[in-house]
Amino acid sequence: MKHVTFFFYAIFILQNTCLIVQAQNTEQCNTIINFNDDVLFDTTAMFCQTVWSNKDYILRYAQAGSELWSFLLSAPNTNSWLGIGFSTTGQMVGSSAMVGWIYQNGTAIVKQYYLQAKDPDEVTPDAGELNVKMNATTVFTRSNRLYLAFQINTSQPRKQLLYAVGQYNRLPAASDGLKLLQHREQDSASLDYTTGQSETRSIPYTTIKRTHGALNMIGWGILIPIGAIAGRYFRQWDPIWFYSHAIIQIFAFVFGLVGFILGLVVEGFINAEITHHKNLGILILILGCLQVMAVLIRPKKGTKPRKYWNWYHHNAGRILIILAISNIFYGIHLGMEGSRWYSTYAVILALMLILAIVLEIRLCRQT
C-alpha cells in the first residue's frame, strides 16, 4: 500500500512540475516583460498580438517615430531560423523578410532576404525592399523562446505579413552564402496596425493545398500503380483480378479528379504561377478519362481490335503513371512541404517497385 501511495504521489509531483515548466515557457501578451536589456530600442509601449496561435508566435510592434516602426517577434526556440515577411499581395513571392537565428556557439545573425521565387536559390540574402535601420536589429533567447527584433524606416508598414519557421536543427551556413533553407511551416495574416487586429488567411489555403496533394498522391501516384500491378500479375485469379483492377482504378480516378479540382481552387486562391504543374495535371486527367472511356468500348477477346486496344490501354497507363509520379514530386517541390512528403512518397514508391520486380520475376519463371 505504501508503494502505491508513493507511486501516485510521484505522478502528482511530476505533473505539477511539468505544468510549472510549461507556464514558465509560455508567453502571453498580458505578461509584463522588460526587453530593454536585450533589444536596442525602447520596448515599453508596444502593441502585442498572438499572430500564429498554433505555433505560439507573438508579435509586438510600435510606431517609434513619424517614419520609424519597431518590431519584436517571438516563438518557441527549436534551433531553427525565425522569419517575418512583409508582402503587398499576401504571397511569399515578391516579399521582403527579416530572418534571425542563433548558432550553437552563440553567434546571432539577423538578415533581410528578398523572396524572388519559391525556390530557395531565388531567396536572396542582404536584399529586399525594407529600409532597415542600422544597428537596431538583434536576435536573442529567453525562457526557451527565440526573439527577433528590428526597426524599419517607413510611414506605414505593409499589412500583409508572412510568418515562417525553419527546419529543426538546420541553420543557414556561411559556407553556403547564408542561403535560407526551406521553411518547415508557414502562415500569413493581415494586420491592422491601428486596432491591432490580425486576420489569418492561410489556414484554409494550407489545408486545401495539402488535401490536393494528398488526394493526387493517393489517386494517381499510389492506387493507379497498385491497380496496374493487380492487372498484370494476378490474372490467374479470373475474374477476381479484373474486378479488383477495375475497382482500384475507379477509386484512383475519383481521388485524382477531386484532387485536380482542389488544385484549381488553390490556384485561384493564391494566384500562383504553376503553369507546368497545372498542364501536367490536365494531361494526366485526360489520360485518366481516356482510360475510363476505353473500358466502355473494350473489344471482345480474340478479335483483331482487341490487340490494338490492349496496346493502347497498357501504354497509356504506363505514361500516366510516369507523368503522375513526376508531377507529384514537382508539386511537393512547388508547395515547399519539406522532406517528410518527399521521403514518405519515395518509400511507398520503393516498396511498390520492389513488389513489382518480385512479381515480374515470378511471372517470367512461370512463362
Rank of each mutant, 00 (worst) to 15 (best):
G317L: 08
V292S: 14
L355M: 09
T5H: 11
D119F: 00
T5E: 11
G338I: 03
C18P: 02
T194R: 04
I325L: 15
I322Y: 11
I319M: 15
A136M: 15
E122M: 13
G263K: 05
Y233M: 03
K2P: 00
G65V: 00
F260A: 09
G302W: 01
L215A: 13
A64I: 01
Y243K: 14
A136G: 09
I270Q: 02
L191V: 09
Q151F: 05
S66M: 11
S190I: 14
L191P: 06
Q182K: 11
I325M: 08
Q49F: 01
E199S: 14
F86P: 03
I274N: 15
T26L: 07
L59S: 04
A272C: 02
Q156A: 07
R201C: 05
E185W: 10
L14F: 13
M46D: 06
Q291S: 10
L72P: 02
C289K: 02
Y193Q: 03
F86G: 06
G128K: 02
S198E: 09
I102C: 04
F41H: 08
I102W: 05
Y342V: 12
I270K: 10
L296M: 14
E122H: 03
T344N: 07
K209L: 15
Y345M: 08
S87I: 08
A149V: 05
I286Y: 06
K304L: 05
Q197N: 11
R142W: 01
A174K: 11
S339L: 13
G196A: 05
R306C: 02
